[in-house]
Design a protein around this nucleic acid. Sequence first.
DNA 1: CTTGAAAAACCGTCCGGACGGTATAGTTAG
DNA 2: CTAACTATACCGTCCGGACGGTTTTTCAAG
Lengths: 189, 189
Amino acid sequence: MDGHAPTVDAPTRILDAAENLIIARGVAALTLEAAAREAGVSKGGLLYHFASKEALLEALLRRLSAFIAQEFAACVAAQPEGPGRVARSMLEWGFGEGDLSCNERHQRAGAVFLAAFHHDPALLAPMRAVIAEMRAAVAADGLPPGHGAAIMAAGDGLFMARLFSLYAPSSAELAEMRAALSGLLGARP
Amino acid sequence: MDGHAPTVDAPTRILDAAENLIIARGVAALTLEAAAREAGVSKGGLLYHFASKEALLEALLRRLSAFIAQEFAACVAAQPEGPGRVARSMLEWGFGEGDLSCNERHQRAGAVFLAAFHHDPALLAPMRAVIAEMRAAVAADGLPPGHGAAIMAAGDGLFMARLFSLYAPSSAELAEMRAALSGLLGARP
DNA sequence: CTTGAAAAACCGTCCGGACGGTATAGTTAG
DNA sequence: CTAACTATACCGTCCGGACGGTTTTTCAAG
């Protein structure tokens, strides 16, 4: 019904373009003009959808945090019930062999995250909310206190290492870390 | 003997001022003019010592990574010898009750880190080198493979959480996490 | 010592360029 | 007629950096 219609609507294309730009050329490269060009839209067109750079970043972060929350929920749902369910899913999520699409998602998440923080740290609010939910879930996971939080922190650390290209553990190393942390899943509170 | 002499030399004052600026008002607030003003120096004076913004950031990062390396070495030296020495010192370092000066140091480290990354990710090279050394030390620590790396990652995650103000674990929670991770120190390879 | 000239340390101003944002006039599809 | 744009021009601001000049320090010769 729309053979000539764009595959996605303009706002989405603009958000995608902004992410791509940050990934490819860094946070500083995200300008309104560049994002518009990358999205195949005029600058005026971009500003029609996002009234300011801040609005663009807000939208970017809203989309990201919604996606993360949903992905995490799905990952938890895929784990068997019982104590440590949430912590197990975090291990899966952060230390999984990582199909490439997952890695790419991490990269996109990092890109948006950094860009938002650079413009105004307050923009991270939605992400903070999602993380607070995760922390609550992990605290009510039926593990001894601290065990889940430690696993979550390790996943965060790995995320940061990737975000800033600090180091890249081999998949063997990843598996070892994961096995080590699995040792924290056994005990009861 | 120096009632009118500066307490520290100008380059150091400028580096300190730059850090303070980032901490107080964010990475975007680090401009040559602002740093010069904060350091009580003219812009020209700043450029005399640091020929470009990049040179300033390089110096900041050089100083930071040297400091981190030294602080970490001291922390390791303070731990009893034996397997897991390095991992134990990382626990101490990242999860310690944190005298305030330590927290302030973390904050400064994060500030410099972010500013450098924002300007050019390649500037993180000295920090990457320090981290690579830490990883090597932790790999030769006499623990089962992965255990030390997991502890290190958890410390990194905590660092990131503080860096972006994602969450602030209470000191009780911190102690619990530390206790949990201590469980990874027991086994032999 | 004194001197005086070079070197180091520093000042203040200016410029080119980029960016965010606004404005405006025109176009196309429904 | 309206929503959804395009194309272009423009403004105010700010930043990095270059530059020329000025003060302070150093140091060897007299």
